[in-house]
């Protein structure tokens, strides 16, 4: 099979950073905060690269929609083994309000150009936790989808995907082309090797604009404010089990 895989990725506040809400409650502080590739997207890149290494795919193309600085995550993905990268560049203001529907439409335009046999994306980005883009892209394309994947097998024009669902696991077979979204246990992403970091520098990275793809990226949701959640404060330490049982029995409506 000479399939191409498209992997959309997003630059988000690093997993380990403790976020802060801006003083004016307009957004989460992004200035001078470490940014990285969304962890679910790393898993998507890894899966695509493994499929290529297994001979199932011939090319892995990564794409991100974001500001110029997002090129760093594209380079990271190239260092992990992707072949080519596309940045759909938006300005800072647009990037702050770029929403899943708009991204799905940008991706649809790219799918039209690239004609991939499979799109693998992260199930959600750890910033807005929306969990929408892959499903939206699939709907706009009229493709099947397999979300929350923990295992992917490609054979005979089908993807057989095990999904992590609330009640356990579910395995579906979907016809290709399709969209797959990754869950945490699909794979463990590799670390980039130094030779591959060097090679990544020479791999092609194309820059397009949203306008050139004919997509309106205006937001549909307006953020009115962003607030810290009410803080839960530490209670007390109890000395032993008896004391704990005593406390629980005095709490209303529990035991």
């Amino acid at each position: 099979m000479s399939m191409k895989i498209l992997v959309p990725i997003k630059r988000v506040v690093d997993y380990n950073v403790k976020i802060r809400v801006k003083a004016d409650n307009s957004a989460v502080e992004l200035d001078n905060v470490k940014m990285s590739m969304n962890p679910f997207d790393e898993i998507a890149v890894e899966e695509a690269v493994r499929l290529k290494e297994a001979g199932v795919a011939v090319e892995v193309v990564v794409v991100t929609c974001g500001i110029a600085a997002a090129q760093d995550i594209l380079r990271s993905a190239l260092a992990l083994g992707a072949d080519r990268a596309i940045l759909v560049e938006v300005d800072v203001a647009q990037s702050e309000t770029l929403q899943p529907l708009a991204v799905a439409k940008l991706l649809k335009a790219l799918v039209g150009q690239e004609q991939p046999g499979l799109v693998i994306c992260g199930k959600q980005a750890i910033d807005d936790d929306a969990n929408q883009t892959g499903q939206m892209l699939a709907a706009l394309q009229g493709w099947p989808q397999a979300t929350f994947a923990s295992k992917v097998v490609i054979a005979d024009g089908k993807a057989t995907v095990t999904r992590e669902v609330d009640g356990g696991l579910e395995t579906l077979a979907v016809t290709l082309p399709a969209v797959i979204s990754t869950d945490l246990r699909l794979n463990e992403p590799r670390y980039a090797t130094l030779p591959n970091i060097m090679k990544a520098k020479k791999k092609p990275l194309n820059i397009l604009t949203a306008a050139s793809l004919g997509v309106d990226v205006a937001p549909r949701l307006i953020t009115r404010s962003v607030n810290e959640p009410p803080k839960r404060t530490a209670g007390i330490r109890v000395g032993d089990v008896a004391q704990l049982v005593d406390k629980l029995k005095n709490e209303p409506k529990i035991i």
Partner: peptide, 23 residues
């Protein structure tokens, strides 16, 4: 916003050309 709802609702939103308001 269970795995059931998260799975198909974005498709509904996209087909209606509206945003989904998640969770």
């Amino acid at each position: 916003a269970s795995t059931y709802g998260k799975n198909f609702m974005p498709r509904v939103a996209a087909l209606l050309d509206v945003a989904q308001i998640s969770e």
